[in-house]
Design a protein around this nucleic acid. Structure first.
Lengths: 141, 141
DNA sequence: CTTGACTCTGGACCACGCTCCGGGGTTTAG
DNA sequence: CTAAACCCCGGAGCGTGGTCCAGAGTCAAG
């Protein structure tokens, strides 16, 4: 907990520390995921450590599958003391539900594919390939 | 197996029979997923039953998560007698591998979310919300 | 014949999340 | 001082898979 004296970082330095590209950082600023930073007399953006934290937050939320819209929400909520926690938990639960639904959907797809592959001899006339047959069949799944 | 006499279908009729939109059918034609159909003297596209089949094939392949590029491949292979079957099976296996990888990835995400949700009380100060804390933490997962 | 539903074309536009470009100004190492 | 490396901005472009539009021609029912 040393007193860091503001830490003047250029956008490039922030990019290096976070692994987020320069263009992406500017994009996040346009998209209101990052506040507009202070500027040096030259016009250069002048970042502090908090921005680096915020970018890491964004990166991790993205890894959990949140969209930028959702992350913007999370960031807003995390600035809203008291009311924030409940909402953040709800958002996370909603996201979990979506992830679970997507997994179920993919497992359905996986079963369909696996069945076809099992049944396919891998050689011989096309007419006997169950993959093509299934894809072409009349009945709508 | 009655001898169907060519079946003259307009694009709208095909759309109705397949559930694929008119604009989408024309898009598939541009993208070489469908052959350019015969034309009536008026210039109207004139489809037969085979196109309807082909569109259903495309729809089902899409449901299995194939991209349009992959479907174009599958369609080409399904016209290649003998060599086709082996390749089709390989494509399906590759697709299965991708689906499985995606499921594993989502399960990783799901575990991460579920842990955070379990640990979050859902109320109280933000400082104690493990969701926000985890997203903001220094260590890179 | 009229009316309304259909079809034609080329091209613009959408979401999403970046990524790159040109033409300039700034900063820093040597 | 110079050259390299950095930064600024506005705007275009990418990939995927469509969707929508205007303006003009066609077809079928009444």
């Amino acid at each position: 907990m040393d007193t860091k004296p503001a830490m003047h970082l250029t956008i490039g330095a922030v990019a290096k520390r976070t692994g987020v590209g320069i263009d992406t950082i500017r994009y996040y600023e346009r998209e209101k995921l990052l506040p507009a930073p202070r500027r040096r007399p030259s016009g250069y953006r002048d970042y502090d450590a908090a921005t680096v934290e915020r970018l890491r937050f964004i990166r991790r939320a993205k890894q959990l599958g949140f969209t930028l819209d959702e992350i913007r929400d999370l960031l807003a909520l995390s600035a809203d003391r008291e009311r924030g926690v409940k909402s953040v938990k709800l958002r996370a639960q909603a996201r979990l539900g979506e992830v679970e639904a997507r997994i179920r959907e993919l497992q359905r797809v996986k079963r369909g594919l696996a069945q076809l592959i099992d049944a396919c001899p891998g050689h011989g006339p096309l007419e006997r390939c169950p993959i093509l047959r299934a894809l072409g069949e009349e009945n709508d799944a």
